[in-house]
Design a protein around this nucleic acid. Structure first.
Lengths: 353, 353
DNA sequence: CAAAACAAATAAACCGATTTACCGTCTTTG
DNA sequence: CAAAGACGGTAAATCGGTTTATTTGTTTTG
């Protein structure tokens, strides 16, 4: 079954009656070769099913056509889509992608970075566990690996970065909700360890302050992981008398949106009649569920392309130019979970005057 | 920034006053080396931050520690989780994973397989676009790449396979729905090009026949992709007078479940009061949405482990033993979308007698 | 004590490509 | 016509490791 004897460039050379060097030249598009030889080599290649071994080639050339992609996990479709986009763009540029998941763990992030360095990857595209100042970043810096950081970063003086414009998108959500007349707000997130989340919270709060409206906004941002998040939210609502109850909730991650949704349904609070909901990060199910969920959609495809492009640019220039920040704009997809109710329409109208 | 001069095994050898061969032996755990030399080499390695280049090593050894993972896409979290699991298991076995997406396209699948062959991967784990008889499979076979097929396969005489037990899981769904008294059923799937989907439909229908109950089951299985799927379903419902309307729907994929859900909500048919819903392939949102959706959960983690294990086993044995089929059992997660209504409880009761 | 066996280490070949340095041959130029 | 230049091609070095064949020194055996 296994035809494990693959032909080498020397086999081709012998078959065509030329030297290996000549074959190599033909394969790499050097033009100073007689047509007759080109033809015979081509024929030999076809007959022998020859395909160059990229490993040997890259060893000799001293450069690897590998891009490392490090993401926290792949269960989340955002990272899946990102990785997929990276693959597509890398392929166009003639690079292979080897990926690793850091599993939301900084220690593992370091390990994985080290392994990528062993492989002499040309560069790395990283969604850090925490931020571009975390452990993985330090290691990448120390090892001198050209890297682009994606998603969970703020402006960096060390690395090129690509992020959704979390700040502006969240500010826009603030505008949107305030314009709908909401004055009692809640910002919720289950796990706040990443840079992106805090930026989202900041953007939202900052815009609220700028607008100078008399809005009250609570913040429930939890550091720990999973399990008890729902209980925390429940306790928060329990402690609240009805008058102080938020009329709109902004959840800062997909996971967080699910938790909020679940708790709201448990309490049978009608969406959007009693409370409106906006989630950061869109998903398929959000437009199909009832009510469908208003969400900020990140341009993941564009981010992937941008990241690869930035990395390749960095690889191709010898001089170290100043790191570049790329901010990609998000889109607010307005759906039923923020539909204006009759009651709210009245509130809003009274404010317009 | 870039400390691009990495030390080689020769640097280490020189530093320790021994030959490169000796260093290599120490690194690879050969024991016939004097302790004094071991110590000095260890010291040299530490001082120079030496790390062996796996590319050079694997070139010489003539074997590559790469496993190719080919999946149709990564936006779907099932494939994401699968890839993640493959990575974890491969890592334990000392393999790197290089992945590629076939983008649900058989032509691209061939391309990608060819590229993996160029890289001399040790073996491949493949979720085929269509089945283990598709184009990619043929190419893998022709190239003599040891492969394990996952998910979209039936029993194969050529390859090791790992799948969820689609047939049994679907049969169980049939049992479950029949036991609830349903007699008018609909099986729906948006895109039926893959083996797994047809197996699910068969398992369901076969069990219905076996049970010998007087149930009627329509099948809506569409070959084409996307866009018009919702319209097809709408037309089907439109053409149906109320008496012949299904009381339970079994949707065969996550995507299909979303489409059904969306159409049911458009029609304002109450779930589960007017129609029950079971989906194949579970997702986070299904347990949080209202009503929560009963779904068949595939043991993706176990499948990934099993696939890697099967591949490694295949790689380690010289003789070609007969291909092995691994069937992983699914779990039916019963939720609100199939809650027994009062009306149905009566029906069921009348049948029990 | 010489021969044989063993232990530890190394020089050199090798994996499969690319690249360098150099070699003929033919043409052009002074 | 000799020197210089252009053209087409090749042998050999190289990338960074591993492996083979061989060497050197030490110990055991007859």
């Amino acid at each position: 079954m296994a035809a494990d004897k693959r032909s080498t460039i020397h086999d081709v050379a012998r078959h065509a009656g030329v030297s290996a060097a000549t074959v190599s030249k033909i394969l790499n598009g050097v033009t100073t070769v007689k047509q007759a030889n080109v033809d015979r080599v081509r024929a030999a290649i076809a007959k022998l099913d020859y395909r160059a071994d990229p490993v040997a080639s890259e060893l000799r050339q001293g450069q690897r056509k590998f891009i490392a992609a490090i993401v926290p996990e792949l269960e989340n479709s955002f990272f899946g889509a990102l990785l997929s986009g990276i693959e597509e763009a890398a392929e166009e540029a003639g690079y292979k992608v080897i990926f690793a998941t850091s599993r939301e763990c900084e220690e593992r992030e370091i390990e994985v970075v080290q392994r990528m360095h062993d492989w002499r990857v040309a560069g790395a595209i990283v969604v850090p566990v925490r931020s571009e100042k975390g452990q993985g970043a330090n290691r990448l810096d120390a090892l001198g690996i050209s890297s682009v950081f994606v998603d969970r970063v703020s402006a960096s003086a060390r690395f090129d970065t690509v992020t959704a414009d979390n700040y502006k998108a969240s500010a826009d959500v603030a505008d949107f909700l305030v314009a709908q007349g909401h004055r009692r707000l809640l910002v919720h997130c289950a796990t706040t360890n990443s840079q992106a989340i805090t930026t989202r919270a900041e953007g939202f709060q900052a815009r609220l302050r700028e607008r100078g409206v008399d809005a009250h906004c609570d913040e429930l941002l939890f550091q720990e992981d999973a399990t008890d998040q729902r209980a925390e939210l429940r306790r928060y609502f329990d402690a609240l008398d009805e008058a102080r109850r938020p009329t709109a909730i902004f959840s800062l991650s997909q996971h967080s949106t699910l938790i909020v949704l679940s708790e709201l349904r448990r309490r049978r609070w009608a969406i959007p009649d009693q409370v409106s909901l906006v989630g950061f990060d869109d998903a398929d199910w959000m437009q199909t569920t009832w009510p469908s969920i208003t969400a900020v959609c990140q341009p993941v495809e564009r981010m992937a392309k941008q990241a690869v492009q930035a990395l390749i640019a960095r690889l191709n220039q010898v001089n170290d130019t100043f790191p570049v920040q790329h901010l990609e704009q998000c889109e607010l997809r307005i759906r039923e979970s923020t539909q204006l109710t009759a009651a709210r329409r009245t509130v809003r109208h009274s404010m317009d005057r």
